[in-house]
Write a protein that binds this DNA or RNA. Structure first.
Lengths: 208, 208
DNA sequence: GATATGTCCAGACAGTGTGTATGGTCCTTG
DNA sequence: CAAGGACCATACACACTGTCTGGACATATC
């Protein structure tokens, strides 16, 4: 908890990989989350899947929540640079919006297990909560910047609270992507998902 | 599990209450959920709070999830009859929308603990999942009926998927009410919450 | 009033999970 | 060869769940 632990450097089989076990734990968990939900996943399950001892696990991570946090950070940073062109946004607004929504769907499809896990768990773990709220805040902030640089959207929004509108669109996305990943109709149909989310953005920002 | 148990009828202290213990369990849990979150709540906590033995608890409920399910049913049916005038909707559409959103906020304020609990838990329990999806479906269906009987909304929606739009508004509400109850800004400010939700409904249905 | 019936409690139990601690093995480096 | 770091197997204390005893006590029946 309080003492910073050193990352192991010298590995058994030569100079190959430092912290290889750590990596094994991460990818085993990522893999397990493809099929099982996070809270029915025990540390023992991860241990056997990653072929790692209990002691080693708790050397690298303080809990399984910390593993999830790391996986989420990976997935989200990977997604942020994917959504970067969206933030710049020089093209046609509506097309850019749809492209951004589609990117989000791709990100969620690629990391469904991890992202479903945190959406289901951030309510009951302080670290995960802080992490997820921060991510949603980053997305919201990006949306705010985008709106502020868009005269037409600004005009349509009038004196409405820009950040609140941006936040609600962010959270609408969070919920709808989750439902899609969970197979809840009608959002399990990716075309419906993208259409309805794009429609929400354009309706709220431009009145269609 | 499979055998249906009979509800106890003859009580110790006269003809007072049948299934009094059951009631005690329900209200103790409801009370505990006001301060603690559902998954850190153990059955033992409920036992001591309700002054009920472990055996009695498992006589009336198969699990603590079942207790939550019952509490949710209570809260939601109570909320459905509150939202009934909204479904009828003869008044000015925008005002009716705002009134409905405000009713939702009131319902969530009155039952924050229980509703937060199920929102956090329906992902990890089959019964709770079925219950919550059914409730969201009921709300969605009511919204669909309301939209179908509103020529202006129908005209504005064009060939969009009415049920998908209604569902996304329902789920947006679910998420935003939850965030408000969880104290996440900017939705912790009830005025912001109501404004942004009302705005979403009117924007999506009428283009403002 | 004796006997059953049903409600309830106290407590023990096995099973499973978490996080920590102990001791030992194997490899690398000085 | 000796020292130390990386790792493993194992066992532990603790908490929680759901089941199962035995017994206390009130009511109903004879």
């Amino acid at each position: 908890m309080s003492s910073k632990r050193t990352v192991p450097s010298a590995r058994r089989s030569g100079a190959a990989a430092s912290a290889e076990l750590r990596e094994r734990i991460l990818s085993a968990t990522r893999e397990l989350l493809r099929e099982r939900c996070f809270d029915t996943l025990s540390v023992s399950d991860i241990l056997t899947a990653a072929k790692v001892s209990r002691a080693s696990f708790y050397f690298y991570f303080p809990s399984k929540q910390a593993v999830l946090a790391e996986l989420v950070r990976e997935a989200v940073t990977q997604g942020q640079q994917a959504a970067e062109p969206w933030t710049g946004g020089r093209q046609d607004p509506a097309a850019a919006l749809r492209a951004g929504v589609t990117d989000g769907a791709r990100l969620w499809r690629a990391n469904a297990g991890v992202l479903m896990a945190i959406v289901e768990s951030w309510g009951s773990d302080d670290d995960l909560r802080a992490l997820w709220l921060e991510q949603m805040d980053l997305f919201t902030e990006a949306a705010v910047a985008r709106i502020r640089s868009d005269p037409e959207a600004l005009r349509h929004l009038g004196d409405a609270d820009v950040r609140a509108v941006a936040a609600s669109l962010t959270w609408l996305g969070e919920r709808l992507y989750y439902l899609a990943a969970a197979g809840v109709p009608p959002f399990d149909d990716e075309q419906v998902l993208i259409d309805v989310l794009t429609n929400a953005w354009t309706s709220l920002l431009y009145g269609r």
